[in-house]
Simulated scan of single mutants.
Amino acid sequence: MIGSEHKPKSIILKQLNILKATALATYKDWAAYRSHLAVSIFVGPVTFLVQIFIWNAVYSAENRLDSTLSGLTLNQMLAYFGIATTINYLIYDSADWDLQTLIRTGNFITFMLRPVSHCYFAFCEKIGHRLLALWVEFIPVYLLFLFVFKINLIPANLVWTLISISLGFVLMFLINYCIGITGFWLTKTEGLRRAFLVLRDLCAGALVPLTLFPDFIQKILFFLPFQFVAYVPTRVFIGSYELAGISLSVPCVVGMQAVAVVVMFLVYKLLWYLGIKKFTGVGA
């Protein structure tokens, strides 16, 4: 009985050790090429400058500089994009590309022989990669947006914001990993991958706030998991949530976000079960 009580603890400890070792190795590996990450420091601010020009023109054309557009003032619109941009540095993921490359080259066969699932290994890699991005990308851009662009980057509730961003982090990984699993069926997946990523970003509110869509599209987006990747963390950061005419409290929408993570995990398990049967190791 004593041995059985300690067994769950030893399993958890083993998984934590794998996470620590993999994340640290990934951190050190990418740290040698941190200039590759540093380039993205310019991408976010330049993209945001474009947003400033676009939305200033839109509000000026509509004579709305002192009023609202879809319930958002010009300052609120720019704050939305500033917050969404900085959050993206924390939740960015490339699991789809990594998995599809392994499948296409046949190198995935090595992971079938390892005592740890590739999904968990890839998730640990993402943690290490984003830990490096925290000080190489996120902090410099955060300070730039805060002091140069004067964007309010102080969350309405720090605890709920951290929880929501963490759930968005996991959900982004699971969605991208499911895209990567399509590599078990398709020989060339780059076209599908690019199309799906554009659709994901559009439906997640990364390109435009979801409240700008027509009401019937908002109702569809409300039931899709994509909003929980970027739109929900951004709205939780701001301190309020509204979509398709539905206003929810922050704890309620974060709870829905947690449910979306569980559902997406089940989708991943199903796709993995079906896809792994298709792997033949071609190219290995």
Rank of each mutant, 00 (worst) to 15 (best):
L72V: 02
L74I: 02
L74Q: 10
Q76A: 08
L78M: 04
A79E: 12
A79N: 14
Y80A: 10
Y80C: 10
Y80E: 09
Y80N: 00
Y80L: 06
G82W: 04
G82L: 03
G82A: 04
I83F: 02
A84E: 12
T85Q: 14
T85A: 15
T86C: 10
I87M: 00
I87K: 00
N88Y: 07
N88K: 12
Y89A: 13
Y89E: 11
L90Q: 06
Y92S: 13
Y92D: 13
Y92C: 07
D93M: 11
D93C: 05
D98C: 14
D98W: 14
D98G: 14
L99Y: 01
T101W: 14
I103R: 09
G106A: 01
G106T: 00
N107Q: 14
F108S: 05
I109R: 13
I109H: 11
T110W: 15
F111A: 12
M112S: 15
V116P: 07
V116F: 11
V116Y: 13
H118N: 15
H118Q: 14
H118L: 14
Y120A: 01
F121A: 13
A122M: 13
A122C: 09
A122D: 13
F123Y: 11
F123S: 03
C124L: 11
E125P: 11
E125F: 14
K126L: 08
K126V: 09
G128P: 00
G128T: 06
H129K: 15
H129M: 12
R130Y: 06
R130I: 04
R130A: 11
R130G: 05
L131I: 13
L132W: 00
L132Q: 05
A133Y: 04
A133Q: 11
A133R: 12
A133C: 09
W135N: 10
W135Y: 13
W135I: 04
V136A: 09
F138R: 06
F138D: 05
F138I: 11
I139N: 09
I139Y: 00
V141C: 02
Y142E: 03
L143W: 08
L143V: 08
L144V: 08
L144R: 02
F147L: 07
F147R: 09
F147S: 00
V148I: 01
V148R: 10
V148W: 01
F149Q: 04
F149P: 04
F149C: 02
K150C: 06
K150M: 00
K150R: 04
I151C: 04
L153V: 03
L153W: 01
N157S: 04
V159L: 14
W160N: 12
T161L: 03
T161V: 06
T161M: 06
I165G: 01
S166Q: 06
V170K: 06
L171D: 06
L171T: 08
M172P: 08
F173G: 07
L174Q: 07
L174S: 03
I175N: 07
N176S: 12
N176G: 15
Y177R: 07
C178M: 08
I179T: 14
G180M: 05
G180Q: 07
G180L: 01
I181D: 10
I181K: 07
T182G: 03
T182P: 01
